[in-house]
């Protein structure tokens, strides 16, 4: 037994590699507005990245504390996006009706439109880019001086680090807070999805919205006499409200 321990120990410590930690402030203007700290860990060769968000406690004290991701992942509470560029896969952990699921999909190819518009924040020139992704139009401000193609959540593929990104209605917003060097173990067992149950993005969409598609009309129809809603909204909520295959259907 002892020998095995000795054998394992150096391996474990060694696996904690130096990586780049990029922190975002996620601002969600949802029905109950929240802000969250987002942490994006980028492996040195940028072949693996993980982004996860953490809820800020009300008393704002622990805002900048370094979070032990491994522990967070084990607790199963968090949502994260794990990119493996070598295998062209994206694993997303998300809660659907309070049940945690891991969604496996190919890395989405975001079709960024680069615009001429630019602005300066603290002496850094930011360029504007837009992108339509799964039902929302996003606006990003990025800097080409830092060659990081990953961003918060599922955003990636811009020619530089994203400083700000938000959807056109400003419901979801991410703001860069800091970039620094940190430790992270990309070889952790938590990121080995071989024996874990995963669902496809289609299954995810079905689970999340299909039962739910009529929610708006459902609520509407339960109102008492005299109560009316003239402008109806789509009641699909969340980041992703329309998927690729649904776009196809519409074009038909």
């Amino acid at each position: 037994m002892k020998y095995i321990f000795f054998f394992l120990f150096p391996f474990i410590t060694f696996s904690q590699e130096k990586v780049i930690l990029i922190s975002y402030k996620a601002v969600y203007n949802t029905e109950l507005p929240t802000t969250k700290n987002g942490f994006l860990y980028v492996s040195n060769n940028q072949k693996k990245t993980i982004y996860f968000t953490e809820k800020i406690s009300k008393n704002k004290d622990d805002e900048d504390q370094e979070v032990d991701v491994t522990v967070r992942l084990n607790s199963g509470e968090n949502q994260y996006n794990y990119f493996d560029y070598e295998k062209d896969t994206l694993f997303t952990k998300d809660d659907i009706f309070r049940e945690s699921k891991i969604i496996k999909e190919k890395i989405p190819r975001l079709k960024w439109t680069l615009l001429e518009e630019s602005k300066t924040i603290e002496d850094v020139t930011l360029n504007k880019a837009t992108c339509y992704f799964r039902g929302r139009n996003y606006i990003a401000w990025y800097s080409t001086s830092t060659a990081i193609k990953s961003g918060p959540w599922k955003f990636q593929g811009l020619p530089g680090l994203i400083y700000q990104i938000y959807d056109e209605t400003k419901r979801y917003n991410w703001f860069l807070q800091y970039v620094k060097v940190a430790n992270y173990d990309f070889n952790s067992e938590n990121l080995n999805f071989k024996n874990k149950e995963t669902i496809s993005i289609k299954e995810y969409a079905n689970l999340k919205f299909n039962n739910n598609d009529e929610l708006d009309s459902k609520i509407l129809t339960k109102l008492p006499r005299g109560a009316t809603i003239v402008n109806q909204k789509t009641f699909r909520t969340g980041f992703e409200i329309k998927f690729e295959w649904e776009e196809d259907l519409k074009e038909d």
């Binding site: 402030k25 601002v27 802000t35 603290e122 700000q164 917003n173 703001f175 860069l176 807070q177």
Partner: peptide
């Protein structure tokens, strides 16, 4: 460290 002018504060 970037001091973002946040559109919303809690």
């Amino acid at each position: 460290i970037i001091k973002a002018d946040l559109p919303m504060t809690i």
